[in-house]
């Protein structure tokens, strides 16, 4: 695998991406009148849960990020 692969491009304004190295990460648009993107790399447990539950799990995880953009210190701002 040599390039990023967008697995989900959601109208909820997030996308789930598999990196060239195989890791899964979420890019999520956060904010209200000023919107920007944060990135959260999924843990092994979260990646496993996505594998089992699919898009509804990704939706829920993305909504959790929107509701708490620092996401416990795991989110980094995308330039």
């Amino acid at each position: 695998m040599s390039e990023e692969q967008v697995l989900i491009q959601s109208p909820l304004m997030y996308r789930l991406v598999r990196s060239a190295e195989g890791a899964l990460f979420l890019d999520v648009v956060v904010g209200g009148i000023a919107q920007f993107t944060v990135r959260v790399v999924l843990t092994a447990q979260e990646a496993d849960a996505y594998g089992r539950l699919g898009r509804p799990y990704a939706d829920r995880l993305a909504m959790d990020v929107m509701a708490s953009p620092a996401f416990g210190g795991r989110a980094i701002r995308v330039p």
């Binding site: 109208p11 648009v29 920007f36 330039p79």
Partner: peptide, 17 residues
């Protein structure tokens, strides 16, 4: 409202919202 340009490109332009 304001968006970073990267958010605008990735979530408005690319998906043709």
């Amino acid at each position: 409202w304001l968006m970073t340009d990267s958010a605008y490109q990735n979530f408005v332009v690319k998906p043709n919202a």
